[in-house]
């Protein structure tokens, strides 16, 4: 079963009285353990789709099914709990908590409630992640003492700390130089292979796109290409015919 299914998902934004359609009714699935790229130019709907998969935004219509659970109609509290358990986030501008040091930033999600990591394993797990992202000597530093690349590594470790099923990365390389950007993508790919976490990242950088197993290309809120392991994926359900309850 796919880990993520989007069914006829539409998202409209309201700018005053003007309705701006950001995502125009799209459907696709993502398989467990894949390294997925959502590609497209600015304004194509990448971030909106990631936000909806990440349950921090809700579709205007359509359904988002994560890990077998239809998220439609969940309360804010339930969505938050679900995010905490199942999802990890990496942001374009790192978004670390400035008053916490590297170790505390990585630990932070563990402190927010029950996770898949037993409490007696927290320390060794965080130490392992810090080692993985190569920040062993920086654990006591605050974010403002780190370079952009280092900050993004902290963010990756933070995203992984709860052992989520899915890690979402919204343009994780956009604020980094290309060499650092490639290192970050390589690191994500390495972790993807090692611990079989599903990674979904959005980008408009053609070089990075091609590292992915599964590429979903967008333009103007619709899918123009959906290829997995070099083959086209058949559309599930017709575009523009949202499922109504």
């Amino acid at each position: 079963m796919p880990i993520i299914q989007l069914r006829s998902v539409k998202k409209d934004y309201f700018l005053g009285k003007v309705i701006v359609p950001a995502v125009k009714g799209i459907s696709f699935s993502i398989e467990r353990g894949d390294f997925v790229s959502i590609a497209g130019p600015s304004g194509s709907g990448k971030s909106t789709i990631l936000n909806m998969i990440g349950l921090i935004d809700t579709p205007t219509s359509g359904e988002v099914i994560i890990d077998g659970k239809n998220t439609k109609g969940l309360s804010d509290q339930e969505l938050t709990r679900f995010r905490h358990e199942v999802l990890g986030f990496i942001f374009q501008s790192f978004n670390l908590i400035p008053v916490l040091n590297v170790w505390e930033n990585i630990e932070f999600p563990l402190l927010l409630g029950k996770t898949r990591v037993p409490k007696n394993e927290w320390k060794s797990w965080i130490d392992f992640l810090i080692g993985e992202v190569g920040l062993g000597d920086w654990r006591a530093h605050k974010p403002n003492e780190l370079s952009g690349g280092q900050r993004q590594r902290v963010a990756i470790a933070r995203a992984l700390v709860t052992k989520p099923s899915i890690v979402l990365a919204d343009e994780p390389t956009a604020n980094l130089d290309s060499a650092t950007g490639e290192q970050i993508i390589d690191l994500m790919k390495k972790i993807n292979r090692e611990i079989q976490t599903t990674f979904i990242f959005s980008t408009h950088d053609a070089k990075i796109v091609n590292i992915a197993d599964h590429i979903i290309r967008l333009r103007d809120g619709t899918i123009i290409e959906n290829r997995r392991n070099g083959e086209d994926v058949a559309e599930e359900g017709a575009v523009d015919t949202p499922v109504e309850d």
Partner: peptide, 16 residues
């Protein structure tokens, strides 16, 4: 505000 958004994303509840 972005810190708040980040915290909410990683699982901090509204009340918190």
């Amino acid at each position: 505000i972005r810190e708040i958004g980040t915290m909410r994303a990683v699982g901090v509840q509204r009340g918190e």
